[in-house]
Design a protein around this nucleic acid. Sequence first.
DNA 1: TTTTAACACGAAAACGTTTTCGCGAACCTA
DNA 2: TAGGTTCGCGAAAACGTTTTCGTGTTAAAA
Lengths: 346, 346
Amino acid sequence: MRKKITLKQIAKELDVSISTVSKALRNSIEISEDTREKVQAFAKLYNYRPNNIALSLKNRKTKTIGVIIPEIVHHFFAKVIRGIELVANRRGYNVIVGLSNESFDKEVINMQMLANGSIDGFILSISKETLQQQDYHHFNETISQGMPIVMFDRVVNDIICDKVIIDDMKGSKNAVNKLLNNGCKHVAIITTKDYVSVGRLRTQGYLEALEDHKMIPNSNLILKVDDELLSEDHLDSLEDEIEGLFKRNKNIDGIFAVNELYAIIAMKVARKLNMKIPDDIQVIGFTDGVLSKHATPSLTTVSQHGQEMGEKAADLLIDKLEHEEDEERFQTVVIETNLIERESTK
Amino acid sequence: MRKKITLKQIAKELDVSISTVSKALRNSIEISEDTREKVQAFAKLYNYRPNNIALSLKNRKTKTIGVIIPEIVHHFFAKVIRGIELVANRRGYNVIVGLSNESFDKEVINMQMLANGSIDGFILSISKETLQQQDYHHFNETISQGMPIVMFDRVVNDIICDKVIIDDMKGSKNAVNKLLNNGCKHVAIITTKDYVSVGRLRTQGYLEALEDHKMIPNSNLILKVDDELLSEDHLDSLEDEIEGLFKRNKNIDGIFAVNELYAIIAMKVARKLNMKIPDDIQVIGFTDGVLSKHATPSLTTVSQHGQEMGEKAADLLIDKLEHEEDEERFQTVVIETNLIERESTK
DNA sequence: TTTTAACACGAAAACGTTTTCGCGAACCTA
DNA sequence: TAGGTTCGCGAAAACGTTTTCGTGTTAAAA
């Protein structure tokens, strides 16, 4: 077992000083060609690589960015990470991942674990519990210590930092417009409780689309699902809720769901009730995941461009890290959504 | 903006030495109660936290583990990461993620980026390209530098290290047995080219199950899909290939697919050809992902327990990191698969 | 030959910790 | 009072780098 070699060991072997070795490896003109070649040959032979930790300590930057997300087994977040990793790597950064698991405490702990020198900045999406409790002190503290944060998707106005979001309202408005233009007269929405900002905004988009079409929203057609239902065991009761929605409103001919799963389950229920998709009922979901693409019929959906969000977030963060100039200028980047039309709409 | 405070600054403020501050914070008995309280109060006030990088350098361990996977937008790998993160966090470790994107070069580069002091050990699953080229020097070099590796799922015998795998052969044998016991007479398999070890093993399990039932394998019923087809654009040709399989073998009444997507597409094709599932044809997939659960009909599948694999891998690695004793003993842990029966089988 | 300049290299500090060792002061024991 | 303990604290080394500055040797200029 050959442990990693250090400058000191090279210096000793070659009977020169550490400084000389360091300079020789960095091709300093201070060092004679002779010595330089000797040192470089030796270093190559022993496969010398500078120790990252030592560099981090010296430079007081780690070239590592911390990513805190609520959940990783999730198509959207996975895509975001892929985007982050892509540009981080391209720009010479590593990515540390922490999962909050939608819990406030885990979010705080994870951030503390990383904020003590391990990383140069954060990219994160806020956990549901944090959104619910509206306790953002850990974000503000981190920022006030001079560590930049870029938030994506689930953001909040109270925190002043760079943000990457989609226009949830516009995206869902487009989707609902599509349904209405396709002739739907009774479009229902399956959404979440309001404290999830994206749920609230998407509901708003739905309402605006109706308004534009001079239609009066019918509260019976708005189903606000309790988020807990997403935990695996409760899928059945989610199904029941949706079935209830259909049965109470026999005339439903369009469904807009604020996420993929809701839409898929809605389609399942529709099928069970012998409604033909898209003839009797048209369905649009949000977030383009693997389910939308491979469901039968495949699902028309609002694409969120997770990877692009990740890339943009990473670029914003690294820009901030590398140019202290515009330290105090924060931007909110809006990624355009688009409607991917598939078989669930006409 | 209050930058993070250091021992040195505390020492200066309180007019004591750095050593005293350090000891006081760690409750050393060397320090008088007076001083201790004074220091701790000050530290608390300024929210002092030891700098991780400095600790890493001093202790020559980073309490960070590096994870290299081929792809993150993938249910199975995401589950593994979740498992890794879970126990890593519980045991005081961070997780750095690198994506090889199924490329040999990116795998090598990623490992080099991390192996220079950034992490204490690796957990990884080998990229397809690496498997194809059978070039494992980067693994061996890393190991010979004294950095432990735990491999999961896609492993290879040539490398001596801890491994976490499933019994692919047994899992698929069970699945095919299920089909045969359910009365299928002509079971086809949709698998990958042989260089993907898991594909090869699963094919072998299929053959063994046939043999156990005294059935003679029919090469027409074995479809080896070129992996490139998985790249998004080629889904259509994958569908065509499967349709060809069905049309050439009108008597197929069972399908075993070595992954979820192949199974889903097979079901799609079957439906297109007006075959009823599970009456005319029964289908079983591999890897329990979101598609299997939410497809219609839902898919019977061999569950791979990704999260458990991740947890086990992390435990193995951290055990090795923290107990140098059994440094030279390596184990291969086999996680049991089980068949999740759903609507696609009788 | 003397002064100057260029050259080649080494010493040391710094990044932020922890820990070993040493040392002075105060206290106790004989 | 002399010697020994205990107490409380500080100096310094170490982890592995990079970089600034100083210094001795040699070659060029006067």
